[in-house]
Design a protein around this nucleic acid. Structure first.
Lengths: 360, 360
DNA sequence: TGCTGGCACTCTTTTCTTTCGAGTGCTAAT
DNA sequence: ATTAGCACTCGAAAGAAAAGAGTGCCAGCA
């Protein structure tokens, strides 16, 4: 059965009204608001048909209508106009986000926080795991029993670790360790660092104090941490703004789910890119059945790809939220994806700067 | 007016019963539970007096009694026995915490998370700011337009930054920069790095590409970040377990406050050390009037001191919570305060390891 | 044929009353 | 001093009545 133009118009108006008020929508208000010149009786007939087709629902006989999942789905897919943010708005958000992105190490948490803030919903952000290797080692000899290990990774991050030895060690040995580590451990993925390799290096160094083990575990740690998918979850308190989470049990269940299983979200994208809306019961996870999810993928270059998303009531303003998520994804990809950060204004103009984070 | 031994006993029983049930406590249950052999009528007389003295309150004429702030205060100060955790319990918690403390860089967040977990309340942890200086700089020349800056700080943390130049630079110049930075910038606090100093260094380096400015801003950043008080707030969702936060507005107000003003908590300690309980309306902040706060100070050595605390309903189990907070504070101080972490078992046995974090 | 006003009907929400019961305060007896 | 007993109070729970929103359907009209 096809759906007439007028029905679509009515459905769209109904969904938007419901999003606004959180109350079942009656034919009367709809007739006033819908903008198509016909009476409430006509609307009633149309509503009855839309109900029969499965797009609408009545909580009880004498109540207004509420969209079903199918209704939402139609709205999201065809009816809604993704909110065009005003030029200033876009500009403002862009600037704000760009500012956050200046510091690269907390990319994931920055993105998540930003998403939460502008949508007033709990948000999460996940960075896809990536295979990294160590490009070079440097060992800085500080004093007779202190040195610093520095590793430059293939993703341009830098990790370091300060080592304080209970025994003294000569600078020469540290230098030799450096040479050996650079010779044996660079270009390897985490899983390629094996015990035999470590033992061989230890023999080559001719040292029994465990120096090699320390260096090796540093390498492993650095790689482990760099290739771990970062994740961020936050803004849960914003849930409580929305009437559907008045029931503390519901709110708590969702919050706990967010905290415990953020890693389940990326697979909801199914490998697709762009913005994806998942309406309430379409969700596989039990805990999300009452809530909708809006996800977007981003690509920050250097193989740093990920997913950012927000979770909210089924009755959320999809048009606005989806618009904002798209903006975020685009801004990130624009700002970082093409390689390199635009330098800030001021004295640093002449140089590209990239800060890094470290292990432990 | 002094307070009889029996009154104290009754008050303690009442507070504990109220903590358990969250309902006003009547004379009847109290007579059964209190363990002192007297009838409900006697208890009623005593309760009436305790009410007159300001320790108890009646929500309405025909309801049971509820402790007032004053009542709680007396309970906390004199009556409660700080929960002695069982030996295994203590052992288990100790081990768990010690494990977390292995990684030093997220000390604050680890402590906070731990506190939240074992008390089932939202928690926060704040590290006191400390004055740090840079002990030494190292500049690692990677290739013709890439180098890494490494700074060892007086608190034994290491910061680094990868710099990618749009122009090429010789290793010699980087070495010279290193010498100059070590000569001019070590031992300084953040506020002692002035523009004239930077300019002088720039002249000495005889370079117009802005290298000096980059190095200087790195130094400033490193110091700023290291001396910033770290803070952690988390576990807000646990609030919803407790009936007094059924009202989403209340829950939300408190959560927002925690997120926005965590820095207000340390000053509640007034410079004291140990465990401090602040009962509901004793709080200065409006947002905390309905909630109680249990704070503890910790000292992790190396000048890393801070405050860890939990927030919950006025009717919280002070005995247990205070006991646990004390345990945390003590464990941290024991494990770290005396200097150095006990090494983990295994291959690292021979060395003391201390990981670090970095800027940006 | 499609739209509209009108109207009876349904079911929730709100409001008001009534009942119920926990707990008190007081008094008289021990 | 302690206790049993009892009238009283006041909130909470239960029940009844009224209000209101919205529907479905019908008959009339373009």
């Amino acid at each position: 059965m096809e759906i007439s133009q007028r029905k679509k118009k009515i459905l769209a108006a109904l969904v938007e009204l419901y999003i606004e008020t959180a109350e079942p929508v009656g034919s009367k208000v709809l007739a006033q608001r819908a903008g198509l010149g016909c009476s409430s009786a006509t609307i009633r007939n149309e509503l009855a048909e839309l109900s029969a087709m499965g797009y609408l629902n009545q909580p009880h006989t004498s109540a207004g209508r509420v969209p079903t999942v199918q209704g939402y789905r139609l709205y999201v897919n065809e009816l809604m106009e993704r909110q065009r943010l005003s030029a200033e708005e876009t500009e403002r958000l862009n600037r704000e986000l760009a500012q956050r992105l200046m510091a690269l190490d907390n990319l994931v948490s920055d993105i998540g926080q930003f998403a939460s803030q502008i949508t007033d919903l709990p948000a999460l952000a996940i960075a896809a795991p990536r295979a990294v290797t160590i490009v070079r080692f440097d060992f800085i000899y500080v004093d007779v029993n202190t040195f610093i290990m520095v590793a430059l990774l293939s993703d341009n991050s830098v990790k370091n670790k300060l080592i304080r030895l209970p025994v003294s060690v000569e600078k020469l040995k540290i230098d030799k360790l450096s040479t050996l580590m650079n010779a044996n451990f660079t270009g390897l993925r985490e899983d390629q660092i094996t015990q035999p390799l470590i033992s061989a290096t230890e023999r080559a160094l001719d040292d029994m104090t465990g120096l090699t083990a320390v260096a090796a575990s540093f390498a492993i740690e650095a790689l482990t941490q760099a290739s771990q998918p970062g994740s961020f979850v936050g803004g849960q308190n914003r849930l409580l703004h929305h009437p559907e989470y008045q029931d503390p049990d519901k709110a708590h269940a969702l919050m706990s789910f967010l905290n415990q299983a953020p890693m389940e979200f990326p697979q909801l994208m199914n490998g697709e890119t762009g913005v994806k809306v998942i309406v309430g019961p379409e969700n596989v996870s039990e805990a999300l059945r009452d809530s909708s999810v809006v996800l977007a993928t981003y690509d920050a270059g250097d193989g740093v790809r990920g997913v950012v998303g927000v979770v909210g009531p089924t009755r959320m303003d999809y048009a606005v939220v989806a618009g904002k998520m798209q903006l975020i994804a685009q801004t990130i990809s624009n700002a970082l994806g093409t390689g390199g950060l635009k330098p800030p204004s001021g004295m640093d103009n002449k140089l590209m700067i990239r800060g890094e984070d470290t292990i432990e």
